[in-house]
């Protein structure tokens, strides 16, 4: 079980979090036509590698988080608050390597 480092609560088991799926850009609903709107609704990039997605710290602070994750290894590359700059990084290690991607 991986852990996610919540920017508010610190590292917690992934079972505390709810997965919200890939973050995709929503077309303007006022002007959207069916084709791009349904592409937004139904299509995922679904990459084998890094992806940006939304998670909710459901059993913790109840904040929505932006998570960058490698879908092949489940390595967490970065976690940040929605709209903000990266506030923490999970590229921590037990080896004492300097943690990267700190703000």
């Amino acid at each position: 079980m991986i852990t996610l480092s919540c920017p508010w609560c610190g590292p917690r088991n992934v079972t505390e979090f709810a997965y919200g799926g890939e973050s995709g850009a929503r077309p303007d609903p006022a002007t959207a036509t069916p084709q791009p709107w349904r592409r937004y609704l139904y299509t995922n990039a679904n990459p084998a590698g890094p992806v940006t997605e939304t998670w909710l710290h459901r059993a913790g602070c109840r904040r929505y988080l932006v998570v960058e994750r490698d879908t092949t290894t489940n390595e967490i590359l970065a976690i940040r608050r929605p709209g903000g700059a990266p506030s923490t990084s999970a590229r921590h290690a037990t080896t004492g390597r300097a943690t990267e991607q700190r703000p």
Binding site: T3, T73, E75, H92, T94, T95
Partner: peptide, 16 residues
């Protein structure tokens, strides 16, 4: 012991 008790080490990461 060194790696596990290093200050700042965080458990539960998926390490390469």
């Amino acid at each position: 012991a060194e790696r596990a008790t290093e200050p700042g080490s965080v458990r539960g990461a998926a390490l390469p």
